[in-house]
Design a protein around this nucleic acid. Structure first.
Lengths: 186, 186
DNA sequence: ACCATTTGAGACATTAATGTCGCAAAAGAG
DNA sequence: CTCTTTTGCGACATTAATGTCTCAAATGGT
């Protein structure tokens, strides 16, 4: 098989990141595949979009697993919690940049399965935030879900910064971590 | 005239905030108007979308003007700059909530006129951020455009928080200002 | 009550994307 | 080399939304 389904998904994500309204024909071309072959792999557009969503969630979960999120959420040591947050944020930079369009796209919010998995991953992070609050690493006076949405919003800022070339790729993780913890005031 | 163009724009914004892919027929219904009448006011879908964009930019500019952004950007007094930032952020909560879908929608990024006006408004804020950096109100070690994107990202967080009911409407401005300046770390 | 204007309803043509199919060419396994 | 599978290409039907048009109803001002 010259081009696998995974490769099509990758190409589609890359293309949709720059052309969010691309048609199936465009996505086929971007993957270097005919429209018929694209339909052989993904029977419908929704099917393809769902695969993109699954890929994004998969990467997100991998980032969580790589830093041992679940174990860390049981942690009470502040320094280790802070490190976990830092590492996770750094790992999520790549996810946000690579799968960014899934971050804001509307087509994602209609698939109950994806929505459910997304909620689960979010809850895992929220558990980490709550642990960090208990350990005094994150402010306890902020609603934990506000922290979660802040976290998400800053990833949108990352994506936008990279897309527009506002900051160098090698600097962005540091800025993100720094801003998340310290804010912009001096 | 029972229903004005402005009222249609208002209804369309409200509807699109919850149903981002709504058709012209849906938008007509949401405005309590026939499809024909909708087309009498806005000859095409792009025309309507452009009107929504103009409305959003208008509100954004009003928020800037209301706090005297241009004058403040010439300011060197830290306390006053901080106040201006606070007031602007507070005013933008409403804009983000009301015109939020324009914040992330792709249809907006293709109209050169809107894009140009949007860049102008953004540059005005960047001038304010730069003044705040010089006055020691905002950290000078952060790229000013990163601050701008952070600002934007936090407004996305506001919109999301309100949409999901994660935080009370009366609390959100305070959380936003607080998080912007101080971050989430303790 | 009368007239001018606006509206709603429905029909219509157009357009663009989607998904299906068949067949010939190409690729790959043995 | 041969046979099997996969691919590309083009044609096709379907669908959904868009934008235009006409005409009768109703709205509103005087």
């Amino acid at each position: 098989m010259a081009v696998t389904a995974d490769q099509i998904v990758t190409a589609a994500i890359h293309h949709l990141n720059e052309h969010p309204t691309a048609s199936m024909a465009e996505l086929a071309e971007a993957a270097g595949v005919s429209r018929a072959t694209l339909h052989r792999h993904f029977s419908s557009r929704d099917d393809l979009l769902a695969a993109l969503g699954r890929r994004a969630l998969e990467r997100w979960q991998q980032a969580q697993d790589a830093v041992g999120l679940t174990a860390a959420a049981q942690e009470s040591d502040g320094d280790r919690l802070r490190d976990t947050l830092r590492e996770l944020l750094t790992a999520l930079v790549e996810v946000a940049d690579e799968h960014g369009f899934a971050l804001t796209d509307h087509a994602m919010g209609v698939n109950p399965d994806l929505l459910h998995r997304s909620d689960e991953l979010e809850e895992r992070e929220i558990a980490l935030f709550a642990a960090a609050q208990r350990a005094g690493v994150l402010r306890a006076d902020l609603p934990v879900r506000w922290i979660s949405n802040t976290w998400y919003g800053l990833l949108v800022a990352v994506r936008e910064s990279l897309r527009r070339g506002d900051v160098a790729r090698r600097d962005v993780a540091g800025l993100l971590v720094d801003t998340f913890f310290e804010g912009t005031g001096s």
